[in-house]
Design a protein around this nucleic acid. Sequence first.
DNA 1: TATAAAAAGTGACTAAAGTCACAACTATAA
DNA 2: TTATAGTTGTGACTTTAGTCACTTTTTATA
Lengths: 202, 202
Amino acid sequence: MKNIFPFFKSELIILLTRECEIITVPTQQEILRKGQYVKVIPVVLKGLLRVYTTHEDKELLLYHIKSSESCVMSFAAGIKNGTSEIYAQTLEKTEILLLPAQRLKKWLEQYPELNVLFNLQYEMRYADLLHTIENMVFHKMDQRVLSLLHDKATLSNTKIIKISHQALADDLATSREVISRILKKLENENKLVLSHQSIKIL
Amino acid sequence: MKNIFPFFKSELIILLTRECEIITVPTQQEILRKGQYVKVIPVVLKGLLRVYTTHEDKELLLYHIKSSESCVMSFAAGIKNGTSEIYAQTLEKTEILLLPAQRLKKWLEQYPELNVLFNLQYEMRYADLLHTIENMVFHKMDQRVLSLLHDKATLSNTKIIKISHQALADDLATSREVISRILKKLENENKLVLSHQSIKIL
DNA sequence: TATAAAAAGTGACTAAAGTCACAACTATAA
DNA sequence: TTATAGTTGTGACTTTAGTCACTTTTTATA
């Protein structure tokens, strides 16, 4: 844990290690539902989460949560005893530190570095949301697809992305056919190479 | 100021009164530009701000900042000596408290209630952005227009909104003709009444 | 009151994205 | 090997929104 939070005092690290549970969640598992009361705030130690919202069986990816990052939305909900506004699921086998919401409230007063952590997380998510918004309004679907693929490539640190067209469609709140067609077009423009279940970015 | 921040200690109120400037800005004035370094963090005492982003002469309203609220985006930028990601302008004559960014950093450690304030602001803006996103992806333009009008009505506490079609178009990053047509359609559906320069919500 | 500027109305067209229907391909497990 | 489910390709069509060109209305003010 010391590697993941280098600016935490040893005392705080010991406290967290003693008082918080660490769970390992398999891939493709929902860990937070919209409307659910938040008792514990997840911090990703290892792995990757996908945070999204839904409306009438359409989804939209909001952002990813990777190692050493937390879900500020559940932080917000947890602190004020409220419910989650978003969904979160694992995209790979993920190790998660669970901070008990009620106790965290007290810890925030004792350990200012926790405040710093969550302020940083808020800032990051705000920037992510802004980025998502700007992509949606100001760019056409082909650019959005390309941008999403680049994000995925960065996250998994590879040029070859293993994902189905349907999953991309879900991330962008569109339909599978639209994605398939756009990918074909991007392939013709030499921006990527398609194969079954995977896309190589050029 | 005591009315606006009831949970601040008197000591803090006195400090803020002594150390911070309060300015009065006329309507329709830009107070923050994208890319600008943030030296002071604005807190609205009275009035209304419009926060938006742009791309190639298109705009998009992100949210409003009303009395007793602050701009967390400039908070984020101010604290880490960065630049603003957004634009802000006044929508009416507005009184603004200016917190000097560098000193605020120290105050945050001394007065935990300041942390609480900014955490609340972050949470509020995150919710606003999420709302903006969901409106954009999951709803058609007519619903977005209606929703925007309802927001404006709530903000100004009246059913009659004084605004031009062009201004609505700017808020929604679309064109004036689209708004004009949709307003006509909504009028036919008895959801509002149009007159020159103003719209009455039914 | 005359007139210019701003605001709003509207038809005709184009572009982008969503929908439907169905064919074809690929991987896996019985 | 052969079902079978999941995945991808594609044509035809519809819907929604954006664009262009122009007219009409309203407001402010010289």
